[in-house]
Design a protein around this nucleic acid. Structure first.
Lengths: 226, 226
DNA sequence: CGCATGGTTCGATCCTTATCGAAGCATTGA
DNA sequence: TCAATGCTTCGATAAGGATCGAACCATGCG
């Protein structure tokens, strides 16, 4: 009948509250065990197990056995991207919250998306790198621009080893607030990692927010200006 | 409890096959009546009516009464974008189709997304405009670049009147094949309109595909090269 | 081996929701 | 005013699927 991709199948997988909670919990790109996810979703283990089986069967999650633990993770960037986009719509059409809580604000400012920086800072970084020709849009993808090699050398990020990986070096990822993008891919991950190593920022253990220290903010701003 | 947007609510709206069919039918940005959508979804009118009420209530569709007809349309670009992204995931994780039919190929090459050009040609156009500095990424959004005014003047597109509209002039929209973007917004719509007016291409009445004529293809390629 | 822990499978229950026929409301046209 | 069209509401039915307790498998540890 229809030749088009079966979007209802995917959407209905995300459409159950328990599963949506699980997926959201995995948005930071990490892997969690079945019991952790059960807790996260607020259901008992049999229920969680059933949901997880469906998510794996549906291709949204991958499963890795380790001893008697089973670790579940998002099956890729595309899933994280999709969840972000759905979040964006839910934000707009959802009930306007009276006032966004402090954690909400922090998430908007900077958060981890799979394995790279998202939120206002992520977008600002991406735009800055593009406008300074450190990155460049070419053909289909984001690429290293003319000023890129020098920039990343100075940061101590080795482009050679990164581009050897199987995953794409650069990718853009749509943000919550739909019309902005931020940098994903191996390079996006490496940038975030560098910032964390230098203690510019740390993760909020309670959420996906990335909390910048005052000094970290200054360093980050300097990075943006070049 | 959770501060995050309620993605399950939105996803479950899309997760019903009948509703998904309706939404897909509206992906071309047009408006359809309740009975047309019922037909499209393959359900009777009472069922369709119930679904449509939910979609409006959920903020995914808007309703416009005209006489004894009720026209439903996507409530905005963000909804179209979301559907494209979900399609992208469904494509990847879905059952590998034996061989894509001819219409499927046409859709991939060029199709209408809400009101602008998507697919390979849409992506190619977007990239070309960016690399030739006709468009530029700056701060948060896509903007007119240094070479833009002249380019659009020559095409007979009046940027002044377009930017007067309430909707953003430029936007990027994530494509099916997730890592590419194409141009949306008022300008994206105007570009597609221009090409249709000049008979470079026409819509396939059976699908969302855009069919280029041989001459249209050449003109389009010339447009890309500058 | 025996026991604890992590996880799945099974079966029963229950709730949600998609569905449609029939009746009702609204708008148009005669 | 009456009839026709477009759509919604109501009520009943049915089906899907989310949930959990109990029993069952597997791995690791003493």
């Amino acid at each position: 009948m229809r030749e088009e991709p079966d979007i209802a199948r995917v959407a209905s997988l995300v459409g159950d509250p328990a599963r949506a909670n699980m997926l959201t919990a995995l948005m930071d790109g990490g892997a969690l065990t079945a019991s952790e996810l059960a807790l996260e979703a607020g259901v008992t283990m049999p229920t969680a197990s059933s949901h997880l089986a469906k998510l794996v069967e549906g291709g949204l999650l991958t499963l890795q056995r380790q001893g008697r633990h089973r670790y579940y993770a998002l099956s890729g960037h595309h899933v994280a991207s999709m969840l972000e986009t759905i979040s964006g719509v839910a934000e707009r059409v959802g009930p306007k919250r009276a006032r966004p809580g402090p954690r909400d604000t922090a998430m908007r400012e900077a958060r981890i998306c799979y394995d790279h920086l998202a939120g206002d800072r992520g977008v600002a970084l991406y735009d800055s790198l593009l406008s300074r020709r450190i990155l460049a849009l070419r053909d289909d993808t984001v690429e290293i621009g003319p000023k890129g090699q020098a920039f990343f050398d100075e940061l101590g990020i080795d482009l050679g080893s990164l581009s050897g990986q199987r995953r794409p070096l650069c990718r853009s990822c749509l943000d919550w607030s739909v019309r902005r993008s931020h940098l994903a891919g191996a390079l996006g991950a490496a940038l975030l990692e560098t910032m964390m190593e230098r203690k510019w920022a740390r993760r909020d253990p309670q959420s996906r927010a990335i909390l910048f220290s005052p000094a970290g903010k200054q360093n980050f701003e300097r990075l943006l200006r070049g």
